[in-house]
Design a protein around this nucleic acid. Sequence first.
DNA 1: GCAATGGTTCGGCAGCGGCCGAACCATTGC
DNA 2: GCAATGGTTCGGCCGCTGCCGAACCATTGC
Lengths: 254, 254
Amino acid sequence: MVAAANMVEVAALVGDTARATMLAALMGGQALTASELASRARISKSTASGHLGKLVNARLLDVTQKRRNRYYRIASPLVARMLEGIKAVAAIEVPQRYQPRSIGDDRLRFARTCYDHLAGHLGVAIADALVAEGHIVLAEDGGEVTVSGMNFLSAFGAALGPKAGGRRIFCRPCLDWSERRYHVAGHVGAEIHRCCLERGWLRRDRDSRIVRVTPAGQVGLRKAFGIDLRGNPAPAPSPAHGVMKKRLWTSPGE
Amino acid sequence: MVAAANMVEVAALVGDTARATMLAALMGGQALTASELASRARISKSTASGHLGKLVNARLLDVTQKRRNRYYRIASPLVARMLEGIKAVAAIEVPQRYQPRSIGDDRLRFARTCYDHLAGHLGVAIADALVAEGHIVLAEDGGEVTVSGMNFLSAFGAALGPKAGGRRIFCRPCLDWSERRYHVAGHVGAEIHRCCLERGWLRRDRDSRIVRVTPAGQVGLRKAFGIDLRGNPAPAPSPAHGVMKKRLWTSPGE
DNA sequence: GCAATGGTTCGGCAGCGGCCGAACCATTGC
DNA sequence: GCAATGGTTCGGCCGCTGCCGAACCATTGC
């Protein structure tokens, strides 16, 4: 067997707690070692080795050897999107009250990476701001950058490339599991993330998906997007763009 | 247990041959009965009943009772997108030669529905034509309708709605598993499909994803998109838009 | 009422696959 | 050379879950 032959095989690979935990950890966008992944999944090294072998075989993960360590990473954006899609379905209609609080830390809910872009409260806030200003349009099916958005984002430092060329200019919605609303993914989302890191507005936690906002970021984000993060829990999220149809959860602020 | 709690559960549901077969059958967009699904998956009614119960419980499927029959359908576009995503990953890099020929009929490869839009050779040909004319832009991350595209598609009869409203105007790429190239999904894809059916250009096979092109369709598709379908195998596909990076298969015309 | 049809429930069987620890291999550093 | 570290392979155990047929229930049609 080389590479997964069909949906069943792929889905079955994701459909195991240990493997899914590893994949979720790797959705942070960083490469992690086998041992690190084993400890995240709380399984023995031997078990982890077996799982990782399968995932690499099926081309869901890539490995690179560096000195004594093997670093695993998500093999392609296609895989990342698949995982997003599964997560989005899984998050549907699970009433908030059933989700034990602080499962995976409030900081994770506040700001994290989602493969190559920003998610969590911060991600959604940025999306809200861009929508409110008319810079982008986001909905269930897709997203678009408006003319003003092209100007704004270019000025911000995003490399949007030639629109005509058809090469990765895109803006894609990604359903945020913690906020249950859309944040910006696709090339635009990745560029926003990159620019924020580059300016020192954000810093990534070591070996984690958690993103922290620096003091400079507090100021920068407020000036650029009008986002005020000082009261951590959130500046009232404007209902500007598409939300899940059924709000079964009891929306406790966050 | 009501509704799937996490990715693992959802993926595990898809990660079983019988259930995946049923889901794939339902990706045709039509609702099917329990017995029909059991026979598609080649399992007993009792086994099918168990599987369908799980899928409904997890909110992947919806049921509606009609007389003596229970009709199952994909519960939401989100689920459909998830399945597309898994399929896309599964289709990666599986050399064509490994895929037994005519598994599922050449007609399926030629033209079929993919939930609410067109796929197969026909779907890709339409996408190619629209891209070549500059009506849409398609790439890995997303798609866009150009100004000329808005005019063209409106004239074609597609209800694109107010661009500003942000309501389902979108054009999304969907990786075609048989062609390994993108076809048009999202609202635009669904509208094109709808218009073609409405004009009598296409007809759906009963209880199947297969779509047949009527004589009127032959003419209409040629006039509207410049697609010539008389030589079934295909008018040389222009390499106009995004293809999979690695072409491991030996592209035998199709 | 009865027969036919569509679907579900139950009990029992069988096999896949996850898990671990121990042994093993390879690389690094001394 | 040796010890330490990171990872893989192997063997054996165990439990989950898919499968079926038979019985059962509900609706339809006569």
